[in-house]
Design a protein around this nucleic acid. Structure first.
Lengths: 337, 337
DNA sequence: CCGAGGGATGTAATCGTTTACAAGCCTCTT
DNA sequence: AAGAGGCTTGTAAACGATTACATCCCTCGG
C-alpha cells in the first residue's frame, strides 16, 4: 500500500533509457526509434506500468473528465444518452462524471462542477438552470458547455436536440387524421423549454384543424409517472373528455394509461394515447405505445463529439444540431368510436 | 484560456501569507490562527480560487474518484442505487464514475478501471465477472473493491446485498397461500448468482409444500423486457399452464404481463404474477405489481460507506451486510379460479 | 575532409498542491 | 533570568508525468 507505485522512472531504468523517451514512446511513438520503442514497450509490460493520471493531468493542465449534468439521475430517459456519451468519451481519454442538478426539490437548480475546475467540459441537460450562472461562469475560467435535449433561451450555447415542435406536430396530426376532434395534452412543467415547444406543436395542429383546446384539456405535469396518474384522475373527472391525449413523455403516458386501466378505462378503445421519447418500455406496454421516437444514443454521441471539438480548442461548424424525430406507430391510438 | 489559472500562490500573495498557510486553512483550519484564517478566506473569495484537483491528487497519491461497475448502464434498476452512492461520495470528496462491464454482448465481462490506477475504490455490481481477474488485481496495487447486489462465489470480498433466497420465498409462499398449486418461475441467466438464490427460494417453498415443479414451468430469461415477453410466449404454448408465475425481476414481469395482455390473457384473473425489485414503475402498472421490495438507495449508501472505510485504511466490522427485503402486495396476484 | 542538417535521446524545468521540518515568538515555570 | 514547550508560520522537498532545449551522432553534399 504505502510502497511507491511503479512510475515512469522504473520503466526508464528497466529499459535503460531516460524518462523522456518512455513518455515519448507512449505519446508520440513516431518520434522514437523502432528498436528503442520495442525495448520500452517490453519494459512497460514487465513492470506492469500504468501512467499516473493525476500527474499527467497536472502537467497538461486538464482534468481528464467531462461531466453530464442531468436534472435527475434516476430518470431512465437519460441512461442510453449517457451510454452514448461514454462510448465517445472513453476512447478519447475522458472519464464521464454524472451529476444531477436537482437539489432535492429545491427550486433553483444547482450547477455542480461548472465553476470548480474539476471537469474539462460540461454537457448540460437542464434548461431550467439559472442562465446567468452559466454565462457568468463562462466569463471566467469555466470549461466549454454543450446543451443537450434542453436549451437555455437567453444564451446561444452550442446545442444538440431534436425538433420538439415537429415531434409534437407529428403526434397530434396523427391523432387528428385518425378522426379525433377532442385532443388533450399532458404537458411537462410550465417553465420547461421542452414543454413549451411540444405544447406549441399541439396548439399549432389543433388551431390549424380548427379544433378546440379548452383549458381543462391541458393537464400540467412534470414528466413523471405520478404526473401521468394525476392527469388520469383529472381526465376521469371531466364532463366532456378528450377522445385522445398526447403525453409529453412516455413515462407520463405510462402513468396515465396505468391509472386509467385501473379505473376500468381501456386504451385505445375508450381513449387514444400517444407518448414522446420511445423508451424501451414503450413497445412492451399493453397496449404497445405509439410514440415520438428520439434517437437517444445519437443525441449522446453528437453532444460528446461537439464537446470534444470545443475542448480541443476547435470551432463547431454546426452550433445547433437538430436530430430527426419520427412517429413510431404502435397500438395505443385508433379512430374514435 | 492559455493564461495561468489562479493558484494557491495568488491567494497566498493576496493574503500576505505563505502557500502552506493557505493550504492549512483549507485542510486543517484548527491549525491556523483565527485572524489569519479570516484573511485567507477573504483572499480566496476575492481571487475566486478553486483548488486544482490534479495537483492535490498527485501529491496525496490518490485519484479522487470511485467507480461503480454495473453490468449495463441502461438498466434502470441501478439508477437509484447510483444516486445513493453519489449522495455519500460527493460530500466525502470523491467523484463517482460509472462504467459498464458488458462488452456489447461479449461473454467474458470486462473490468475497466480495476487495474489502471484511475480510481481509489470500486463498487462492483457484476457477479459474472471472472473472479481470478479481481483476485489477481487485488494481489497487486489495486484499489479496494466492494461487491453490491451480486457477489463472487469464489472470493470473500466485502458485500452489500439483500437476502435473495428469503425474498423469493416470501413471493412464492404468498402465491402458495393464495391457493396456487402450479407456480412457475421466470428466472435470470443460469450462471447469475441472483438467479440461483432466487430459484433456490422458489424450489424451497414448492418442495416444502409438496408442489410440483416440472422443467417447463421454469422460464429462463436474462432480466430484460424481451425475456419477459419470450417467457409469456412459452407460457401461452403450454398445455398445463401455471396459474401463477414468480418473475425474478420487475422488468421481466413487465414484459411478461404486457405480452400476455396483448394475447388477451388477463393478470391476475387468468394468471397471477409477482415480481422482484419494486422499481418505480411497479406501482403504476395495470395491474399494480405485487413484488419483492429492495431498499435500493440504502444498498447504494451502505456500499459507499463500506468503501469509504476501506479507502481510509479501516477494517469493516461487517463484511457481509444483508439488508431487509419485504413483499409489497399490490394487485397482480389473487387466488386461482 | 569539413560543415550542415536532421534524427534520436537526455537533462532539467514545470504543473499546483501537501507536508516534514525548522524557526520564531510567547508564556510560564523554576 | 533562562529554558521548556506550545502555537503559528514559513521554507522547500516531494508527488509523477510532459516537454523545451541541448546534445550527440550519423549521413551527405561540396
Amino acid at each position: 500500500m504505502t510502497r511507491r507505485s511503479i512510475s515512469i522512472r522504473d520503466v526508464a531504468a528497466s529499459a535503460g533509457v531516460s524518462v523522456a523517451t518512455v513518455s515519448r514512446t507512449l505519446n508520440s511513438p513516431a518520434q522514437v526509434a523502432a528498436s528503442t520503442r520495442q525495448a520500452v514497450l517490453e519494459a512497460i509490460r514487465q513492470t506492469g506500468y500504468a501512467a499516473n493520471e493525476a500527474a499527467r493531468n497536472l502537467r497538461q493542465r486538464r482534468t481528464g473528465a467531462v461531466v453530464a449534468l442531468v436534472p435527475n439521475i434516476a430518470n431512465q430517459f437519460f441512461s442510453e444518452i449517457l451510454a452514448g456519451i461514454a462510448e465517445v468519451m472513453w476512447p478519447a481519454g475522458y472519464n464521464l462524471l454524472i451529476a444531477d442538478t436537482e437539489a432535492d426539490g429545491q427550486r433553483p437548480h444547482r450547477l455542480p462542477y461548472i465553476d470548480s475546475n474539476r471537469a474539462d467540459g460540461v454537457i448540460l441537460f437542464d434548461g431550467a438552470v439559472p442562465a446567468e450562472k452559466v454565462s457568468s461562469a463562462a466569463g471566467r475560467r469555466a470549461p466549454p458547455v454543450v446543451m443537450a435535449c434542453e436549451w437555455l433561451p437567453g444564451l446561444s450555447l452550442p446545442q444538440v436536440r431534436i425538433d420538439n415542435v415537429e415531434g409534437a406536430r407529428l403526434a397530434v396530426a396523427y391523432l387528428a387524421e385518425l378522426g379525433h376532434r377532442r385532443i388533450g395534452h399532458v404537458s411537462g412543467p410550465a417553465a420547461n423549454v421542452l414543454t413549451r415547444a411540444r405544447m406549441e406543436g399541439w396548439c399549432a395542429v389543433l388551431d390549424g384543424c380548427g379544433l378546440p383546446r379548452p383549458e381543462e384539456w391541458l393537464f400540467s405535469g412534470d414528466f413523471t409517472l405520478d404526473a401521468g396518474m394525476i392527469a388520469a384522475r383529472r381526465w376521469l373527472a371531466l364532463d366532456e373528455r378528450p377522445t385522445a391525449v398526447f403525453c409529453s413523455s412516455d413515462t407520463m403516458a405510462c402513468g396515465f394509461i396505468g391509472a386509467l386501466a385501473r379505473a376500468g378505462v381501456a386504451v385505445p378503445d375508450d381513449v387514444s394515447v400517444v407518448g414522446f421519447d420511445d423508451i424501451d418500455l414503450a413497445a412492451h406496454l399493453h397496449p404497445a405505445l405509439t410514440t415520438v421516437h428520439q434517437p437517444r444514443r445519437r443525441i449522446g454521441t453528437a453532444a460528446a463529439e461537439a464537446l470534444l471539438t470545443l475542448m480541443a480548442g476547435g470551432k463547431l461548424t454546426n452550433t445547433d444540431t437538430v436530430l430527426p424525430v419520427e412517429l413510431t406507430v404502435r397500438a395505443s391510438a385508433k379512430p374514435p368510436r
